[in-house]
């Protein structure tokens, strides 16, 4: 029988799972949106934004096993 505690536990696990990006591309999408957010709300210069996004893309491609990048 499923107890209330078990349901709570499952919900917490589901919540944790939702926080973990599905794959490296979802993770990259999240990082890019955060860079965009920082720039939009004014604490990061606009000039740096594209540079930071490119760096994240490069890092993801490298982690993906492509040593040439």
């Amino acid at each position: 029988m499923t107890s209330l505690e078990e349901i709570k536990k499952q919900l917490l696990e589901a919540e944790k799972e939702a926080d973990v990006p599905r794959d490296q591309y979802h993770d990259l999408a999240r990082k890019i949106v955060n860079i965009e957010r920082q720039s939009f709300y004014g604490e990061d210069s606009e000039r740096n934004r594209l540079k930071k996004i490119r760096e994240e893309i490069d890092a993801t491609v490298k982690r993906g096993g492509n040593s040439e990048v």
Partner: peptide, 14 residues
């Protein structure tokens, strides 16, 4: 080409 593919995946996710 790898970079384009990576960016395209992110584009589709967004």
């Amino acid at each position: 080409q790898t970079l384009v593919e990576c960016v395209e995946k992110v584009e589709n996710i967004l």
